[in-house]
Amino acid sequence: MSGTLNVTLKIWRQKDASAPGAFKTYEARDVSTEMSFLELLDVVNEDLQKKGEEPVAFDHDCREGICGMCSLVINGRPHGPDNGKTTCQLHMRRYKNGDTITVEPFRAAAFPMVRDLVVDRGALDAVIQAGGYVSVNTGSAPDASAVLVPKHKAEEAMDAAACIGCGACVAACPNASAMLFTSAKVSQLALLPQGDPERERRVLKMLDMHDASGFGNCTNEYECEKVCPKEIKVSHIARLNREFLRAVLCGPEEAKASAG
């Protein structure tokens, strides 16, 4: 079922963080329905370059839904209309002839504008660097049954580990909170024996960095869960909340001190 369509794109253009931004309208003619959304932007950019105009800057890398580099808020929804999909996995067959599509960058105080549709999502890396790791020398791969992990925990940890760090949760959250992202890592490592020794320190340090980066407070609106391309559940946020309580109320003294 291939065909072509004409769509109108309203794309946010902004030279840099200090310049004011605005929407610009582009007409895309004879767009193949087989094209991905990012390929459509490629075509638009080729036309712009031919006309001697600046192409639209946007983030992308793997284009197969695994790296978390692509972004975009498409018609008000991060990663476009489909559940469990990244922007690079969105195809033009999802649209009708004559549609107008509004494309905006992820907006959050913690994600400074770089250019057009590109924002700096480095704050997410900082949150991981603050504690989203296990500091033991793991050596070579252990025997499969040397470290026992119950199946339900392994599954939940795996679900949390699916996070690709794209930041759609932040983009969708009315408070621009990165709590789904942070909780995915806290939850994953809290569920596994390898993550256990540092769990109190981890949750405190990651939350400190989360708050210091300018992300908002989670108010349980669950918009994040609905747009997450990896369908990570807000039950991980509840686990993070428990981890925090546990760390504050019964964590070992030195973990609390070093996390300060």
């Binding site: 905006e104 907006r107 959050a108 621009a176 992300f215 609106e221 918009e223």
Partner: peptide, 24 residues
């Protein structure tokens, strides 16, 4: 703090919820 975390709003606001306002 939450209002400060999202200084610029989206031009198109499409909530995934039928009635998100109680939380908003």
């Amino acid at each position: 703090e939450n209002r400060r975390a999202r200084p610029q709003r989206y031009a198109v606001e499409a909530s995934t919820d039928a009635w998100p306002y109680a939380a908003r």
